[in-house]
Nucleic acid binder design. Structure first.
Lengths: 344, 344
DNA sequence: CTGAAAGCGCTTACAG
DNA sequence: CTGAAAGCGCTTACAG
């Protein structure tokens, strides 16, 4: 078949085959492949090796290489749910960072595994990945088992008791900006539709709300905080609680967009206009926010940067190092239609 | 430290260590680990091995095992974009199927790789995964290089010229149900807001529209079809085109939800009510659809089943087998608020 | 400077 | 039935 490159019999060509065909030693092929600067061969020979690799369709066996070098050139990332767009951004950042460092990134959902995280860790064993990122909701119990895992790991977007290996966002500051945005519009009765108390992010967002209210000289009474579970249904219920409080809040800072979807529905059903009667702002900007009615004002956090930085730290630190980093920039309010001055 | 299990020095324990400590041969440890039925040891010995594994925190080296057995017990899935919820469902199905078969699934985005798909394939090499799923938009050119890849692969949700390895949905039927839904409501002037002609899914949806219109005895004039690029912006523009046609269509079947978001915006800006003036139905159900205003009627397709079936076929067929399968069930219309009888 | 050889950590056919 | 030994495909320190 002239004009068409010959296809090797699939998956069978080894480095030794290349060496034989090219008429060199295996070590030469290996060194050409890895750009070993200490290798001195004629350009002609090097080219012959390269041509042979191409012609035979040779692909290095990753398992053999990993076994020999104890490096996989691959990182892993566990997320709870691929359907949550927050994780899409984190993945994107981590993937870019991995690729830039010459690594691949494989992502899997911890929730999708029948037998749980432990099963996946067993499957991974040693030498499959050089490190693992956990951007999730794994329980402390599950992560306890991590400590005996044979691979370096790092928590992303959450801290866990006793752990000194995490990268988080500045949720306090993001929440503060949300409150400041509402206060600057003239709101004084600002409520907080919080996330679940079990979630580290929810606790930090609540702390940011409380601190910012104090800084603005506003009261953050306990009744102005309602807890939901980061879902539309939970958000709808918590919003009903907040609407029952007197005097009624004129603005709500919601801990995530999913809850805000439910909150907007409750407000609509109650016949209240947004932002006429109640302003709403939520944490984490995502394209869904722009398509809600009214379009939702949000706080945009550096999720992609979080993913990127986490991967970089995982790649460049030793497993025993402490990592307690906050990715703080950029944080900004994305003003859409759901916030405005109070009518009262 | 009594009461606490001793932690091994991380990542260093090998099967040989376990054998030494347990006082057995390495092959016994290996056979216990793999439940080799031909192994005959006293229950006591077996338990001692298991205890030693636990106590030393031994984890098999995946690279060594893969090198030896030529199996990775891992599959890979490439998608174009983690932010697209369509892929989240496909991933979920594929992940479940992989786990059920005792495999892991690693997902990566082909778009996120700086140097493209080829770079990732190089990184993967041989023996890293036992097969690859491509649920994406890779060009035919890129996939051409796949043919020489050393790993079995399968296209998901798209066909490509010349390929005999793909699993797709019954887009024709889904589109047909959309048209039937509109026709049953009494619509006769049904337009199609199509996807890009370069996309296989868009071509099949359009074919389904045309066939269903004919079956219903309705005219599908060329001017009643406008092409967009599967984005809100594209959908907005294409909707403007359709609104300019006289007589104006009373209903539109939109090829995907992203385009429908833009179409709804155009209709709103034109002062037209949905479904009062124009009914809208779109392909692929996703949670966003329920949160739009008005809530969007959609066609729910078995995306999760597509992912599951694709993985199963990848796992259970030989690389040289033809696979040209259609995942047909279940397909159903999810009726929300954006469709109703024509007002005229 | 070059290439032969050891060895990474497993699995398993095979000799005893 | 058991365990010693070969070998998977690489990389690289080291002998020549």
């Amino acid at each position: 078949m002239p004009g068409r490159p010959k296809q090797a019999h699939s998956g069978k060509v080894t480095l030794a085959d290349v060496a034989t065909v090219a008429g060199v030693d295996r070590s030469v092929v290996s060194r050409v492949l890895n750009d070993d600067p200490r290798l001195n061969v004629r350009q002609e020979t090097r080219q012959r090796v390269l041509d042979t690799i191409e012609r035979l369709g040779y692909r290095p066996n990753a398992a053999a290489r990993s076994l020999r070098t104890a490096r996989a050139y691959m990182f892993g990332l566990f997320i709870p749910d691929f359907a949550n767009p927050v994780y899409a951004e984190i993945i994107k950042g981590a993937e870019q960072a991995a690729n830039q460092l010459g690594y691949g990134l494989m992502t899997a959902s911890s929730g999708g595994v029948r037998l749980g995280l432990q099963h996946y860790l067993d499957l991974l064993g040693q030498s499959r990945v050089d490190g693992l990122l956990f951007a999730g909701e794994e329980s402390g119990h599950e992560l306890e088992r991590l400590r005996s895992a044979s691979v370096p790991w790092l928590l992303v977007n959450r801290r866990i008791e006793g752990s000194r290996r995490y990268v988080v966002l500045d949720d306090e500051r993001g929440s503060g900006l949300a409150v400041e945005h509402l206060a600057a519009l003239g709101h004084r009765r600002i409520a907080h539709l919080a996330g679940p108390e079990s979630a580290d992010t929810a606790r930090r967002r609540r702390a940011g709300y409380i601190a910012a209210m104090a800084a603005a000289g506003l009261r953050a009474g306990a009744r102005y905080t309602a807890h939901a579970d980061y879902t539309p249904e939970g958000g709808a219920g918590a919003m009903r609680e907040l609407l029952a409080v007197r005097p009624r809040p004129t603005a709500v800072f919601v801990a995530n967009v999913a809850s805000a979807v439910g909150a907007l529905r409750t407000l609509h059903e109650a016949g209240l206009s947004v932002p006429g009667d109640v302003s709403v702002i939520a944490m984490h900007d995502m394209s869904l926010a722009g398509h809600l009615v009214p379009a939702l004002t949000t706080v945009r956090m550096p999720l992609e940067g979080l993913g990127r930085r986490s991967l970089e730290l995982l790649a460049t630190t030793r497993p025993q190092d402490d990592i307690t980093e906050v990715v703080a920039e950029p944080v900004e309010v994305v003003v859409r239609a759901s916030t405005g001055p109070p009518s009262a």
